[in-house]
Every structure is written in structure tokens, then in C-alpha cells.
């Protein structure tokens, strides 16, 4: 009897594992159809000479990637992307941490005030971009009008490369700092208040406590935010499309935007795909690292 029951159990376990597999298959099929196939298409196009209007002459090879290496505009776009990413991520982490640390002290009736800080995160990116475009338009902006009272003329940011990049970073930071804030708030809640008290008893100042106790404990959260925000900033599109249109001139075309310009404005589909492949490989590297990190932290 015992024997047969083990066998039945083993059979049941097998049955269950098969059941699990059946649950994954639809997703596997869907992911393949909706994501893997287009990605394969992107790789294929990147090696072709497909042109949106002229079509293809059947050339197949590395010519797009050879062109990539010597493309000055691509290097310029990587520079823009790097600046936008670095300044955006730093600003979002700093502001998110500051707000989270400040909010954590607020208890009781004013706790609901937290929701106010979430509003920017709820605004869709196109709207964010349009709102900040209005704030950076000198004839419209209330900021300019306010400083005009004191006879101060606020410079027109969107007419220089640095000013335009600054505008994009501000808009990006405004809508995304609540993401850092949420993650840091959650991480702060996981830190025992005993640690702060013990440090205070040992005579540490509040600033020292923050830098030597709280901050090291926040490191995993900060790393996670940095990676997620960095990867998102590789995808910059609506902000650039709406606020600067890539300008002045071509000076704020980040790589993702440059791929769009090559594909849909210059009709160079194959070359656009090659740029997209390059970006994709970068994202693949970073996401591999994130997946490893996730595996380590969760186990």
C-alpha cells in the first residue's frame, strides 16, 4: 500500500509540474509573437539596406554597423543621452531621497500630504513635456513673468544646447522623482529606529547618523533606482519630441530619438534599426546585471 501511495504521489507531482508548464505556454507563445518576432525583425533589418521609399536592393551585411562607427551624429547623440541620463538620475535620486527623508518625519494628520508628491508621477509623459514646454516658453511662462517684475530677464533655455538639455532634465526629474521617493520610503521603513537611537546614544550627530547608518542601508534601493532610471533614460522620447524636437539644430537628439529620425524622417529603416540594435544590446547588458542582482537579493 505504501508503495502505491508513493507512486500515486509521484504521479501527482509530475501532473502538477506539467500543469505549471501548461500555464506558462500561452505567455511563452505571446511573448514570442509580440516581442521576440519584432526583435528578430529589428536584427534582420539592421543587416539589410531597407529604405522606406526605395525598398531594398538585397544588400546584406555589416555595412550599417561600419557606418555607425564613423557617424559623428551618433557620437553626438550618445553624448546627449549620457548627459540626460546622468543628470536626470542624479537629480531624481537626490530629490527623491530628500523628499522621502523629509516625509518620513511627518506623521499624523499631514501624512496624507504624501499623495501630493505622487501627482507628478501620474501625469503622462506627453503632458509632462507640454507643461514644461509652457514653463520654458518665455512669452507664456509665469516664471518669466514673475522675474520680470524685478527687472530680471530669465534666459530662453530652449535656444542653446545646454539650456535645452537642462529643460529636458528638469521635466524628466519632475515626473520621475516620486519613483525614487516611493522606493526610498519603503526602504526607510525597513530600517529599525533602534539603530538611529543607538547612534544618538553613542553621540553621533544626525548628519553623521544619516551618512554612516541610514545611507549604507539604503544602498541596495539606491542602486535599484539608478539602474531602473538609467535604463528608462535610454528610451527618452516624448520629452525630446515635444520640448526640443531634437533642437536647437540637432543638438538634443539622444540616441533613441536619432534612431527615430533616421527611420521615420530620413526613411533609412536599415540604419535606424542598426542604431536600435546597438541600444538594445546596451539594455541587454544592463538588464542582465539587474536580473543577477535581483536573483541575489531575493534568494
Amino acid at each position: 500500500m505504501a508503495f502505491s501511495s508513493t507512486r500515486r504521489q509521484r504521479g501527482a507531482t509530475y501532473e502538477i509540474q506539467r500543469g505549471y508548464r501548461r500555464m506558462i505556454i500561452p505567455a511563452l507563445v505571446a511573448v514570442s509573437v509580440f516581442a521576440i518576432v519584432p526583435l528578430a525583425g529589428m536584427f534582420g533589418l539592421a543587416f539589410s539596406d531597407y529604405h522606406l521609399i526605395r525598398g531594398s536592393e538585397g544588400r546584406f551585411g555589416f555595412h550599417n554597423f561600419v557606418r555607425l562607427i564613423s557617424d559623428g551624429r551618433l557620437m553626438g547623440s550618445v553624448y546627449v543621452m549620457a548627459i540626460l541620463s546622468i543628470f536626470g538620475v542624479v537629480a531624481q535620486v537626490l530629490i527623491g531621497t530628500a523628499v522621502a527623508v523629509g516625509l518620513q518625519k511627518i506623521v499624523g494628520r499631514w501624512r496624507m500630504g504624501r499623495v501630493l508628491f505622487l501627482v507628478p508621477y501620474a501625469v503622462p509623459h506627453v503632458a509632462v513635456a507640454l507643461i514644461w514646454l509652457s514653463l520654458f516658453t518665455p512669452t507664456l511662462s509665469p516664471i518669466n513673468a514673475f522675474f520680470d517684475i524685478f527687472g530680471i530677464t530669465v534666459p530662453s533655455f530652449l535656444t542653446t544646447q545646454n539650456g535645452a538639455m537642462f529643460a529636458i532634465v528638469v521635466a524628466d526629474t519632475w515626473t520621475n522623482f516620486p519613483f525614487s521617493m516611493l522606493i526610498i520610503l519603503a526602504a526607510l521603513q525597513g530600517i529599525s529606529p533602534d539603530l538611529d537611537e543607538a547612534a544618538a546614544l553613542d553621540g553621533a550627530t544626525r548628519i553623521k547618523t544619516f551618512f554612516y547608518i541610514t545611507l549604507p542601508l539604503l544602498m541596495p534601493a539606491l542602486l535599484m533606482i539608478t539602474l531602473f532610471r538609467f535604463i528608462d533614460s535610454l528610451k527618452h522620447f516624448p520629452m525630446i519630441f515635444v520640448i526640443t524636437k531634437g533642437g536647437p539644430g540637432r543638438s538634443t537628439q539622444a540616441t533613441n530619438f536619432y534612431a527615430y529620425v533616421q527611420t521615420f524622417q530620413n526613411s533609412n529603416v536599415a540604419y535606424g534599426a542598426a542604431i536600435a540594435v546597438t541600444l538594445f544590446l546596451m539594455a541587454a547588458l544592463i538588464s542582465f546585471y539587474v536580473a543577477k542582482l535581483n536573483q541575489r537579493v531575493s534568494s
Binding site: F237, G272, V277, L279, A283, A284, N294
Partner: peptide, 14 residues
Amino acid sequence: LLLRMAPPVGFVIP
């Protein structure tokens, strides 16, 4: 993760 992080321009061309 990669699918979430991949630049949409890569999907949209094909």
C-alpha cells in the same frame, strides 16, 4: 526584464 527595458524604437520599426 530585457523586454521591459528594450528601447521601443527597436520594436516599432519591424
